[in-house]
């Protein structure tokens, strides 16, 4: 047990060190800070004197933006992790040592997620503090940010696991990168467009009432956004698919359960794929 933990810690440490060296830590933190600040001060955010706090409003718009950014950064951090080692021939070297495959995968997952967590926590905290400094704080808003950061890490974990699965499924970094772009595009962009199209065509019929909420919650990005917006309890303006946040036929916590299910499934699939990789 102790040996297992030591080996996992060794893999985690080297992945974090690599991310620091390759400036992934600085870059992902910077991206999140910049986008969060831009939303807070340049966007449609807290311009007017509404009864909703500025902190809450930026949390709402940041929830929408996070769906694009966090998965992208998570995939960028992780897609190379196994395919890269296969290409550089370091994987056989690693697997010839007493380390077990699940230990390698766990270590890599924890390492990438640590980097992402750091970026989310630091990036969003800086933005939140800036908003507080300018517009003042309120408890409701602070809770919204805390939720945003916590669920953002969960969303990131899902996509780190997806990235590792992709990386374990192909022996080429280039292929993994192409798959990564495809997956991001389908899950984050096209999925929502398809759902919107379905809503328009269906015009309030069976699809809209029964299938649509389930389909929304089945997508990790949508589940994340829905949970955060629903938790704001109608205090922030929402549009498009997110209108569902107002008329959810199930408790918002189910969205969290969906994210957790994604995470478990992706980790299991990654472990399964990695066992089959022939170094």
């Amino acid at each position: 047990m102790k040996a297992t933990l030591n080996r996992i810690a060794a893999v985690t440490a080297i992945e974090i060190r690599l991310s620091v060296r390759n400036r992934w830590v600085a870059l992902s933190t910077l991206i999140l800070v910049l986008f969060a600040l831009a939303l807070a001060f340049l966007g449609s955010g807290p311009a007017g004197a509404s009864k909703v706090g500025a902190l809450t409003l930026t949390a709402a718009s940041l929830a929408t933006l996070s769906v694009y950014l966090i998965p992208l950064i998570a995939l960028l951090l992780s897609y190379e992790t196994i395919a890269g080692e296969v290409e550089r021939s370091t994987l056989p070297l690693v697997l010839a040592t007493p380390v077990r495959r699940f230990e390698v995968l766990t270590g890599k997952f924890v390492g990438h997620l640590s980097v992402l967590t750091l970026a989310i926590v630091v990036g969003y905290s800086i933005a939140a503090l800036a908003v507080v400094a300018v517009h003042g704080a309120d408890l409701h808003g602070a809770l919204a940010w805390a939720r945003l950061i916590a669920t953002g890490v969960l969303l990131g974990a899902v996509f780190v696991a997806i990235g590792i699965l992709v990386s374990a499924s192909t022996a080429r970094v280039g292929t993994a990168a192409a798959l990564l772009v495809g997956i991001w595009l389908v899950l984050i962009v096209l999925y929502d467009l398809a759902l919107l199209a379905g809503l328009i065509v269906d015009d309030g019929g069976f699809f809209t009432k029964s299938l649509f909420p389930a389909l929304v919650i089945a997508n990790p990005g949508d589940a994340f956004r829905l949970y955060n917006l629903a938790a704001l309890e109608g205090s922030a303006p929402v549009a498009g698919i997110d209108g569902l946040a107002r008329s959810l036929p199930f408790p918002p916590s189910l969205a969290l359960a969906a994210l957790a299910a994604w995470l478990a499934a992706m980790i299991a699939a990654g472990l399964w794929r990695f066992q089959k990789v022939r170094p």
């Binding site: 030591n6 440490a13 080297i14 060190r17 690599l18 060296r21 390759n22 070297l93 040592t97 007493p98």
Partner: peptide, 30 residues
Amino acid sequence: RTVSYLPESVAFPKALTGAELLAYFARLKG
């Protein structure tokens, strides 16, 4: 534990130092 292996044309991550890599493999080998 008995065997050590050096694959053909292994390419270690360029951003790490020799000491860091050696420490990493030492930890993997207990």
